[in-house]
């Protein structure tokens, strides 16, 4: 369990401030646009950026501890394998100099089929291999929590979701919670314990199912469809709000087929998108905004 209270971390003028965040359950996703504080938050939890307040992992406040004593693993976006060292030296780093466990090292190397890579230099292996090595290196260090800062963002979806599934499996086996920063909604499709939405250094909302999301900003990160902003108000559309007719409204185009079908329309110079079940009939789309659900920004 990860618990954060009265937390403030600063980076120059930018500030991440969290009054209370309780993450029950091991599979946590942090979602937010670029530059909203995800990296600052993760680095602060890892102890790499000074912060005030309380950060509890498994009931113990670690916020006064230096990074090496926190038992927080970190996989940054660029992985930061030690490029001139061998894969083996990367994996053994925490065993040799830190809190790593030689038995976990042996298990992980075998389970993740890393043996053929061991003698290669870390800057000579492929991106997919490097991502697996980064996961292995972090887990061998026996973390209580593993923080991941979009480390698989350059992968296709099969590879990315495969790696997240691998993290799930290892998390269950070695008993660590994880907090995974992303701005890709597909990363959530394997399910999650908590989804934390962050914007401008503040947590907007924390939910345990997608259905509980209440904020436009969070929904907009998950899907670009069925959201419109009109006169400063934000709405979530369903098909009842879409009136296709030949008399009035906005012109629209149909994109996709079957379950992926949606329409694209333009209001006040902005394009919006709305899912439709059937091919719409009628030249115009008129929004019945009173049938849409207004949501908070």
């Amino acid at each position: 369990m990860i618990r954060i209270r009265d937390f403030v971390a600063r980076r120059g003028e930018f500030e991440v401030r969290i009054q209370e965040l309780n993450l029950q359950g091991g599979r946590n996703f942090l979602i937010g646009r670029n530059g909203t504080g995800k990296t600052t938050l993760l680095n602060s939890i890892a102890g790499l950026i000074n912060s005030s307040g309380t950060v509890e992992i498994g009931g113990i406040d670690i916020n006064a501890l230096p990074p090496e004593r926190r038992r927080i693993g970190l996989i940054p976006q660029d992985l930061l394998l030690f490029g001139r060292m061998s894969v083996n030296d990367n994996l053994r780093m925490s065993v040799r100099y830190g809190r790593g466990d030689i038995e976990i090292y042996k298990e992980i190397v075998a389970e993740m089929h890393l043996e053929p890579l061991m003698k290669k230099r870390a800057n000579e292996i492929s991106l997919g291999q490097a991502q697996r090595v980064a996961i292995a290196r972090a887990i061998i260090s026996k973390p209580l929590a593993l923080l991941m800062d979009e480390p698989f963002s350059f992968q296709d979806e099969i590879a990315r979701l495969g790696l997240i599934s691998l993290i799930d499996e290892l998390s269950a086996k070695y008993g660590f919670d994880y907090l995974y920063a992303t701005h890709n909604s597909r990363d959530l499709e394997n399910g999650f314990s908590n989804l934390i939405s962050i914007d401008n250094g503040r947590v907007i909302e924390t939910v345990d199912t997608v259905e509980k999301i209440e904020h436009f900003r969070t929904l907009a990160l998950l899907d670009y469809k069925n959201l419109v902003t009109l006169d400063g108000h934000n709405y979530l559309l369903d098909e009842r709000a879409l009136d296709f007719n030949d008399r009035e409204g906005n012109e629209y185009g149909i994109i996709g087929i079957d379950s992926g079908r949606y329409v694209r329309f333009k209001i006040d110079g902005n394009y919006f998108f709305a899912s439709v079940t059937n091919v719409p009939k009628g030249k115009y789309l008129k929004l019945n905004i009173d049938r849409a659900r207004e949501i908070q920004y």
């Binding site: 680095n43 890892a46 102890g47 790499l48 230096p66 990074p67 090496e68 004593r69 926190r70 038992r71 927080i72 693993g73 970190l74 940054p76 930061l80 030690f82 780093m93 925490s94 100099y97 830190g98 809190r99 790593g100 290196r137 972090a138 260090s141 973390p143």
Partner: peptide
């Protein structure tokens, strides 16, 4: 940033800097 990652692996600041 590499040194920082070293510290999350459990290396002290001195060790991380020199290694």
């Amino acid at each position: 940033k590499y040194e920082d990652v070293g510290r999350t692996l459990g290396m002290g600041s001195l060790r991380s800097y020199f290694t």
